[in-house]
Design a protein around this nucleic acid. Sequence first.
DNA 1: AATTTATGTAAAATATTTTTTACATAATGT
DNA 2: ACATTATGTAAAAAATATTTTACATAAATT
Lengths: 72, 72
Amino acid sequence: MAKKVLNNIRKLRLENNGMTQAELAEKIDATRQTVNAIEAAKYAPSLELAFKIADVFGEPLEMVFEYKLTEK
Amino acid sequence: MAKKVLNNIRKLRLENNGMTQAELAEKIDATRQTVNAIEAAKYAPSLELAFKIADVFGEPLEMVFEYKLTEK
DNA sequence: AATTTATGTAAAATATTTTTTACATAATGT
DNA sequence: ACATTATGTAAAAAATATTTTACATAAATT
């Protein structure tokens, strides 16, 4: 009933030569802990961070993050 | 040299029967002041709010918000 | 001209995101 | 087996987003 922000970060990291969380963090000027939390969907990133992450993978934002209905 | 989050909210509001800031705010469960600030790019919204706004206009997020190099 | 509606703005309070520091475990390499 | 690298997690502080309350002006309506 409620929409949630989902992401494909882990999949994209692994597809990109197994980029580590720390490497991704460095590329977006954030910390490893932030990447870890966002990837685990502990919280959603700011729009700016979301754009930076999508840019790293050369994907449109909506290929990385989706706003979707989730069962409970 | 720096990228910034730009938006087309005003344009989209006007195209949608001149939807007011207050009406948009209500549809996304935010306040009129928040819509006003985001529209004026005083700050960028959370990713979730950004998705909600895009949904109201039936547009993909990247049609509403762009992360672009800005002169100056 | 007077009234109502829409927008701009601001300060303080609250909520959320991000950093910093730190430790623990899992996975990989030597 | 040992050492190194990657990931998970947590608590407190800092930064940023959002609300609340309030007032001011602009624009539209009667």
